[in-house]
Amino acid sequence: TIEDAIKKLLKLAQKGQPYTFGDFTVTSEEEAKKLAKWLKKQL
């Protein structure tokens, strides 16, 4: 689910690992949080 993807994304971001989700490449926890907010709006 999208919720699971968001959780995984935040965990990876906390470890400092870049994470690619579709067109987004997230390289920081701050970016992960922005992406998570955006994804929730898409639901």
Rank of each mutant, 00 (worst) to 15 (best):
A5L: 15
K8M: 13
E31W: 11
K15W: 14
L9K: 00
F24W: 13
E3Y: 13
L35N: 00
L43H: 07
D23T: 10
L12I: 11
T1E: 03
T25N: 07
T20W: 10
Q17S: 03
D4F: 04
T25E: 05
P18A: 05
L12S: 06
T1A: 09
E30K: 08
I6H: 01
L9A: 02
Q42F: 10
K34D: 07
L9Y: 03
I6T: 00
W38Y: 05
T27L: 09
F24K: 01
L12Q: 03
A5Q: 07
K15Y: 11
G22C: 15
I6D: 00
V26C: 15
T25K: 08
W38V: 01
K41R: 03
Q14E: 13
A36T: 05
Q14R: 02
A36P: 00
E31C: 12
P18D: 04
F21M: 04
G16L: 14
T25R: 02
V26S: 03
D23G: 09
T1H: 06
K40P: 01
W38G: 01
K15H: 11
L35R: 00
E3R: 12
E30V: 08
T1L: 11
K33A: 10
Q17I: 15
F21H: 04
I2L: 10
T27G: 05
A32I: 04
K7I: 08
E29A: 10
G16Y: 11
S28A: 04
K33M: 10
L9T: 00
K37R: 09
T27S: 07
K7R: 12
D23A: 07
Q17Y: 15
K11I: 14
K15T: 10
D23W: 14
A13T: 06
K8C: 13
I2N: 01
L35Q: 00
F21A: 02
E30L: 07
Y19E: 03
S28G: 04
F21D: 02
K7L: 11
K40C: 15
K15S: 12
G16E: 08
K41C: 10
A36E: 06
K40V: 12
L39H: 00
L12R: 07
K40I: 15
K33Y: 10
L39I: 08
Q17K: 08
L39D: 00
P18H: 09
K34A: 13
Q14L: 13
Y19T: 07
A36Q: 03
K15L: 13
L9N: 00
K11D: 14
I6Q: 00
Y19D: 05
L10H: 03
W38S: 01
K11Y: 14
L35D: 00
E3F: 15
T27P: 03
F24D: 04
E29Y: 15
Q14T: 04
K8S: 04
K15G: 08
G22M: 15
K41N: 11
E30G: 05
A32T: 03
L12F: 11
E30N: 09
T20P: 14
K41Y: 10
A13I: 13
E30C: 14
A13E: 03
V26E: 05
T20E: 06
E29L: 14
K7V: 10
L39A: 01
L12E: 05
K8Y: 10
K41V: 06
T1Y: 11
K41M: 11
K34V: 07
F24Y: 05
I2T: 02
F24H: 04
T25Q: 06
A5T: 09
Y19L: 08
L43M: 06
W38K: 02
A5H: 11
V26W: 05
G22K: 05
L39M: 03
E3K: 12
K41L: 11
W38D: 01
K40S: 11
L43F: 08
K11G: 12
L10G: 01
E30S: 12
F21E: 02
G16R: 05
L10I: 10
P18R: 05
D23C: 15
E31N: 07
A5D: 03
L35C: 02
W38F: 04
K37I: 12
E3G: 07
T20N: 07
Q14W: 15
A36W: 13
S28H: 02
S28R: 01
S28W: 06
T25P: 02
K40Q: 12
A13K: 01
A5P: 01
K34L: 08
E29C: 15
K37S: 11
A32F: 09
L35S: 01
E30M: 10
V26M: 12
T1Q: 12
D23L: 15
L39W: 04
G16C: 11
E3P: 06
F21V: 07
G22E: 11
T1N: 09
Q17D: 09
K15V: 06
